[in-house]
């Protein structure tokens, strides 16, 4: 058994608004039985702006290590679509204090899923082929003011619309330190509630995800980029017939210097939503000081371009202390 995880403390100072401190604590519990089974669970313990503490299950799975190329996971898992959500979001791993635009909640990248997943790696020539395939309950649609405001994909234990989603990611590492990924998911989703209460028998509509990602480490540089989109189709006869597409991409480069104690980061991202107040372009630059490989102080500045007057348009200064333990 191993208790690991990460902790985060930060200060965020948006232009034209009050700065504030925030903190979160993410313990990860790992229980391994021989080379057969691994139990994994991560909690996110967070304080919100009212002072209340929330506890959420980020993921919790039982992993069956069936052979060298196949692991079967059952439970709640981070979405295997793309790279950021499943591997890069922990604060001590993410090189900037914030997630790329569109990779937060209700963005373009799915968060998590509850279901079963098969994944693993297969040696192929001098490289490795990786795969993840899953079936799960799928997302829910957030409806407000007669529109689909977003796609909630945090992983739901219930399946009110009775529809499932299948998806996965294929990756290939043709060279050391180079990885290319292709993700996709498809299924159906239906509106099951609005702010006014539950909705019965709303027709199902198509739900599709498509993503591409790449990362490469060369000559001290860490380069990566990702594109992902979530799309829901139109549904004749629905209380909200019109669907929508949420898509985003980012490109990021970082470089360590000063005996690898310092790190400079630049990231550009562009999130497009059917709702203009959600769309955002962002240039983020940062400097990190590494006290240890898993402990650092990050200072970042975001130049945000969103709808005028919206929070998405406010530049922000962020200072974050992150510790992976």
């Amino acid at each position: 058994m191993l208790l690991t995880g990460y902790a985060t403390a930060e200060y965020v100072d948006p232009a034209h608004d009050s700065g504030y401190f925030g903190a979160s604590f993410n313990p990860i519990f790992l229980y391994k039985y021989r080379d057969l089974v691994l139990g994994e669970g991560e909690l996110e313990v967070e304080i919100d702006d009212t002072g209340d503490t929330s506890v959420a299950l980020e993921y919790g799975t039982i992993d069956l290590l069936l052979n060298d190329s196949l692991v079967l996971l059952a439970g709640k898992f981070l979405s295997p679509l793309g790279q950021f959500r499943q591997n890069l979001h922990p604060s001590w791993i993410n090189k900037l204090p914030s997630a790329p635009v569109g990779f937060g909640e209700d963005g373009a990248a799915p968060d998590a899923e509850i279901g079963i997943q098969a994944r693993g790696g297969i040696a192929l020539g001098g490289g490795r082929f990786g795969y993840s395939a899953y079936v799960g309950n799928g997302p829910r649609l957030a409806v407000e003011n007669g529109e689909i405001e977003g796609i909630d994909s945090e992983g739901y234990a219930g399946n009110d619309d009775g529809e499932s989603v299948v998806g996965g990611r294929l990756s290939f590492a043709p060279l050391p330190k180079l990885q290319l990924g292709l993700s996709g998911a498809t299924g159906k989703v239906a509106i099951t509630e609005t702010g006014g209460g539950p909705v019965l028998d709303d027709p199902s509509r198509n739900y599709d995800v498509f993503g591409l990602d790449a990362s490469y480490q060369v000559a001290g540089f860490d380069l990566r980029g990702e594109y992902i989109q979530q799309k829901v189709g139109n549904a004749t006869g629905s209380i909200v017939p019109e669907g929508g597409k949420w898509d985003t991409w980012y490109a990021q480069g970082s470089y360590k210097f000063g005996s690898a104690k310092w790190e400079g980061v630049v990231r550009y991202g562009d999130f497009n939503s059917p709702h203009p107040e959600q769309s955002q372009k962002q240039l983020a630059i940062g400097v990190n000081y590494l006290l240890a490989p898993q402990a650092m102080v990050k200072v970042g500045f975001e130049v945000n371009d969103g709808l005028s007057g919206e929070p998405t348009d406010a530049n922000r200064l962020l200072v974050q202390v992150a510790y992976g333990f």
Binding site: L30, D35, L38, D63, Q86, N87, G121, I122, R128, G130
Partner: peptide
């Protein structure tokens, strides 16, 4: 012992083969 558990966790995260 800790590495034994961590590497099992990371094998899944990184889609490593069992041999790797």
């Amino acid at each position: 012992q800790q590495w034994d558990v961590v590497v099992a966790h990371m094998r899944i995260r990184a889609n490593l083969t069992g041999e790797e």
